[in-house]
């Protein structure tokens, strides 16, 4: 990858990676740091990565860095012990997308990430699995469970009757 391609990767995918990380951890400063670190790593191995694979590489590296940060902060919620009751809050909003994003914050980190990758970036299950290190079946399970949790949140918050 050339310097020009690196700069193109910054312009083209910078916002996407930042958005994904920001929505995953809800901390703009940490998100900024994580994306900066990701691009710094990309710069350090700029000659070894093909431009065609750079988007997937960026998301994978950023995701792994984010998991490290979350683990360091001991904020990782174990999916197996996840309690659906934390989802339901007495919130009212007419904007479906806004409510969905609020509900997303209440999902476990892994579910949140796979849904973001699916909806924001349109990645396939296989690509999401490569980024997150999960099997394709796991990715499907997390996504389906996440969708059900989001729908239940909408029903409980009276957005959907």
């Amino acid at each position: 990858m050339t310097v020009k391609e690196f700069n193109n990767a910054v312009r083209e995918f910078g916002d996407h990676v930042y958005r994904f990380i920001l929505r995953s951890i809800k901390d703009s400063h940490r998100a900024d740091d994580i994306v900066q670190d990701t691009y710094e790593k990309l710069w350090n191995c700029v000659t070894e990565i093909e431009y065609g694979a750079v988007k997937s590489w960026l998301f994978t590296t950023a995701y792994n860095r984010m998991i490290d940060v979350i683990r360091k902060d001991s904020r990782l919620v174990d999916v197996d012990h996840y309690d659906d009751s934390t989802l339901y809050a007495d919130e009212n909003s007419s904007d479906l997308n806004e409510v969905l994003h609020r509900a997303l914050e209440k999902l476990p980190a892994v579910q949140r990430s796979v849904i973001l990758l699916r909806d924001y970036e349109g990645y396939s299950y296989r690509e999401i699995g490569e980024i997150t290190g999960l099997s394709e079946a796991q990715v499907k399970t997390y996504i389906f469970r996440g969708r059900v949790a989001l729908r239940n949140y909408l029903v409980k918050t009276s957005v959907w009757q």
Binding site: G14, R19, W43, Y120
Partner: peptide, 19 residues
Amino acid sequence: SIRLVPCDESWPGMRSAIR
């Protein structure tokens, strides 16, 4: 209809990352 639409957040550190 349960689909997340990306918001318009932009990465503040983009300019500094450009070489």
